[in-house]
Amino acid sequence: MTGTELLPGASPTVAALAVIGVVVLEAVLLYAGYGVVEDRLGPVVFRRIARR
């Protein structure tokens, strides 16, 4: 799916900005999401590796 398909009829500049906006949003959400996962699961994973 390209920016043009995301916003049909939009100008190339608007479509490009929309693509950049989507990528930034995804990056921020993934950074925050994986941060929460790391905080919760990190110590458990380390303990399990250490026990083996």
Binding site: L17, I20, V23, E26
Partner: peptide, 16 residues
């Protein structure tokens, strides 16, 4: 990303 995005060649599925 802006330059190639204006050309409509960025595949958001791949990027995501």
């Amino acid at each position: 990303a802006f330059t190639y995005g204006r050309a409509g060649v960025i595949d958001l599925g791949i990027v995501t």
